[in-house]
């Protein structure tokens, strides 16, 4: 068990981080190169000012007509994305691991706070799952891959939650938790989770077209 733990919390972490950063960089660069080759006008129309203007509206809860029209979804989606990013970074146990490995540390959530935030992420995943199954317009677009992606995102949080509470089999779930986190990280560049990286560019480009060329708002 210790060997497995050492392996998943040692070399595999390296592998997943390298795949994550390397993959994201690769996807970004290859997109930029392809755009230069095939959609060169994108560079011409991309506007820093109008791109940021659009991004700014869309990353503010209720900052757009769309967000205002769907208040529950807006709250869930913003809460989900914020917690999804903050919890792993500011979780006490994770901060300790950084401290032990690299002797670096930073502020962290109290265990209770982290526990609640993790619960929120899981609840949001359940919300997204139900939404996918119940809403016809989402169900119609859904394929197996959408469930797999959702499971990939939910898994580290479910297993982390399980392990933290020391429920039965928590030693196994602890290892599964690490692996699940690594899978999610490594999957980001190569699945639709890439939206995390592409968002500023797609939104920014639409904002640029609407703002600089069409003198209109896109939110």
């Amino acid at each position: 068990m210790h060997d497995v733990y050492n392996f998943v919390s040692g070399p595999l972490v390296w592998v997943s981080f390298i795949i994550f950063f390397g993959g994201c960089l690769y996807r970004l660069i290859s997109m930029a190169v392809l755009a230069k080759k095939k959609d060169v006008f994108v560079y011409e129309y991309m506007s820093f000012k109008y791109g940021l203007r659009s991004i700014f509206h869309w990353i503010i809860p209720f900052g757009t007509v769309k967000w205002r029209k769907n208040p529950i979804l807006t709250i869930v989606t913003f809460t989900f994305h914020i917690c999804l990013i903050l919890v792993p970074i500011f979780l006490c146990a994770h901060v300790i691991l950084w401290k032990e490995s690299w002797d670096i540390g930073w502020w962290y959530f109290s265990d209770t706070t982290a526990d609640i935030l993790t619960g929120i992420v899981i609840a949001c995943c359940v919300f997204f799952l139900i939404r996918r199954i119940v809403l016809p317009e989402v169900k119609y677009l859904t394929s197996v891959s959408d469930y797999v992606i959702l499971a990939m995102v939910a898994a580290p949080f479910i297993t982390g939650f399980w392990t933290y509470h020391q429920w039965p089999g928590c030693k196994i779930t602890g290892i599964v938790h690490i692996i699940a986190g690594e899978i999610m990280l490594a999957a980001i560049p190569f699945t639709r989770l890439i939206h995390m990286v592409y968002f500023p560019f797609t939104r920014g480009y639409m904002g640029s077209e609407f703002g600089a060329v069409r003198n209109a708002k896109d939110w």
Partner: peptide, 21 residues
């Protein structure tokens, strides 16, 4: 005739259905 835009749009869409309305 297609390139980064088509690819990026297809890869970025998370099938959320928010465009419907």
């Amino acid at each position: 005739e297609t390139g980064a835009r088509l690819k990026t749009y297809v890869n970025t869409c998370v099938h959320c259905g928010l465009c419907s309305e």
